[in-house]
């Protein structure tokens, strides 16, 4: 009898410790993830053939624009940067009455997973899910705007080098727009 009771006790304690470790792991990972913000940077650029060259405010963005497109004018129309958490959607007002929803979905190694929805008025015109390198950029272009086209630069960055398989969370913090020209 006492042998049976002892073996039950040993099993219970061993399994109990295993359960604690199994439970503590994800909880600790989730708790750690709460403090990793994701910064989303949205730039709206008017691209046109009006021979005005590059807007100096575009900075390093001028080079990829010049290599990717063949317009003669690139002008920064708006710039907004917000910080958020994974699973929290950000809304950006774009020129021409467009709205861009960006939601960081998670961090996978050095890649940030994002969902982006572009609205024209109330209608979604484009929805995409993608993984982007930390501090990478995706250009979204094509909508007509004024005398040219609108090119939207979507950048995302997380300040902490993320470890794989963690979701990251934080608080929104809008940054003032440079030049909104609807």
């Amino acid at each position: 009898m006492s042998l049976r009771v002892t073996s039950y006790s040993v099993v219970s304690r061993t399994v109990g410790v295993a359960v604690l470790m199994l439970v503590i792991g994800p909880v600790a990972a989730a708790a750690q993830a709460l403090h990793h913000p994701v910064s989303v940077d949205i730039k709206s650029v008017l691209a046109a053939d009006t021979n005005q060259g590059f807007d100096s405010r575009l900075g390093t963005m001028s080079r990829p624009l010049g290599m990717l497109f063949h317009y003669s004018t690139y002008r920064l129309v708006s710039h907004e940067e917000k910080k958020t958490e994974c699973g929290h959607m950000l809304s950006f007002s774009l020129p021409g009455g467009r709205i861009l929803h960006v939601e960081p979905r998670g961090i996978d190694g050095n890649m940030i997973e994002l969902e982006v929805v572009l609205f024209q008025g109330e209608k979604p015109t484009m929805t995409t899910d993608f993984h982007m390198m930390n501090r990478g950029t995706l250009l979204l272009g094509g909508p007509r705007y004024k005398e040219g086209m609108l090119i939207i630069s979507i950048g995302a960055a997380t300040p902490i080098q993320p470890s794989p398989h963690h979701h990251h969370l934080s608080v929104a913090s809008p940054r003032p727009e440079l030049d909104v020209d609807n």
């Binding site: 080079r63 990829p64 290599m67 990717l68 572009l118 024209q120 015109t125 484009m126 995409t128 390198m133 990478g136 950029t137 995706l138 250009l139 979204l140 272009g141 094509g142 909508p143 007509r144």
Partner: peptide, 15 residues
């Protein structure tokens, strides 16, 4: 995508 600048483009013209 443009490998030199490591930039990807999605081009969606207006309907």
């Amino acid at each position: 995508s443009e490998p030199e600048t490591k930039t990807t483009v999605i081009w969606i013209p207006d309907a």
